[in-house]
């Protein structure tokens, strides 16, 4: 097991290297110059040249990449072109907000999806099942920006139940309830698509397990149906979900880019959007790498967990 983890960790190095090369190339190939240079057409050619030189953007791409890589490896993340702030500071300001949002939506997704999926499977081909299936597909199909706007429109603007955005009441007392109050809608919207997907996976997995011989044996022994389902079937049915959940991690990051715009949530998704539009290269690269690391780690954790819950699996 330990050797497996070490081997996996070693493998992440070339993976991250590959990701960084591709991201860097794509970023540089995107049209346009950093906003710090391009905002003002009244700039004289000399001043523009000086700016480009100052930022080192006149060097060949491999040289720029090499410089970025060596800075990165030595822990120097550089400063944002726009704000002049060290990128590490920017991330420190915003990462906690994004993590809170991600954790809350993951929590919501799991908490809702698994029970609903089980119900759907247990009552296969009933009205309940069809209703759940309908809503699951709707949940997957509805774009979350649209769903978010809809909820803001009805629950915040019309009914006034929730704030329309932000992470806390400005100037108010910072209380846990206030934070939760602001968190609920964005977390719910971010959870929707994954929740819907997870429900479907749970259902399928549950149905598969239910048809196995040992379940029939359990029934034949006269166990109560609830015990058969929850004690015998559920544990095995949840196994594949662990992998799926590991793979869901990145979608939370992707989703947060959109959700944070809509709900004025000051997290790294918002930072990433504005950095992309402003071609703020140092920030874009760090955030991309950060997401890549999260994805890799998410997969790793899923694999390890899988081995832990399923004693048959050995690495």
């Amino acid at each position: 097991m330990i050797t497996y983890i070490i081997r996996r960790l070693v493998m992440t190095v070339p993976i991250l290297f590959g990701i960084s090369v591709v991201s860097f190339a794509i970023m540089m190939m995107a049209p346009g110059q950093p906003a710090i240079i391009d905002a003002d057409p009244t700039i004289s050619p000399e001043a523009r040249e000086a700016q480009i030189e100052r930022l080192g953007l006149d060097d060949p791409l491999p040289v720029q990449y090499g410089r970025w890589l060596s800075n990165m490896v030595s822990g120097e993340f550089g400063n944002s072109y726009i704000s002049g702030t060290p990128v590490s500071t920017l991330i420190a300001q915003r990462l906690p907000n994004t993590l809170i949002l991600m954790a809350a939506s993951a929590f919501l997704a799991i908490l809702l999806a698994i029970p609903i999926g089980i119900i759907s499977a247990v009552r296969q081909y009933t009205k309940t099942d069809y209703t759940i299936t309908l809503f699951s597909f709707a949940g997957v199909a509805i774009p979350n920006f649209w769903f978010g706007l809809l909820l803001i429109m009805f629950l915040s603007v019309q009914l006034g139940w929730f704030p329309v955005g932000g992470i806390q009441t400005i100037g108010g007392e910072a209380s846990i309830m206030d934070r939760l109050h602001h968190l609920f809608l964005p977390a719910l919207v971010l959870a929707t698509a994954d929740m819907a997907g997870l429900t479907r996976y749970t259902r399928t997995s549950m149905l598969e397990v239910k048809s196995q011989d040992y379940i029939r044996t359990a029934r034949a022994k006269g166990f109560k149906e609830s015990r058969v389902i929850y004690k015998h079937a559920l544990r095995n049915a949840l196994l594949p979900l662990i992998t799926i959940f590991g793979l869901m991690l990145p979608t939370f990051i992707g989703g947060s880019v959109v959700i944070e715009q809509i709900f004025s949530w000051p997290g790294i998704g918002q930072l990433f959007m504005s950095s992309v539009f402003q071609r703020d290269y140092p920030v874009i690269m760090i955030l991309t790498m950060f997401s890549a690391v999260l994805v890799v780690i998410g997969n790793l954790i899923a694999d390890i967990l899988y081995a832990i819950v399923d004693p048959r699996i050995e690495y």
């Binding site: 809702l112 139940w161 929730f162 009441t169 309830m177 206030d178 109050h181 609920f184």
Partner: peptide, 22 residues
């Protein structure tokens, strides 16, 4: 499970109710 769902819904309502402050 339905209880759980109901609780989550209730939590949402509770949060909604405490919006008086802002």
């Amino acid at each position: 499970h339905w209880m759980l769902l109901a609780m989550i819904f209730a939590m949402g309502m509770l949060l909604a109710a405490c919006n008086g402050g802002d």
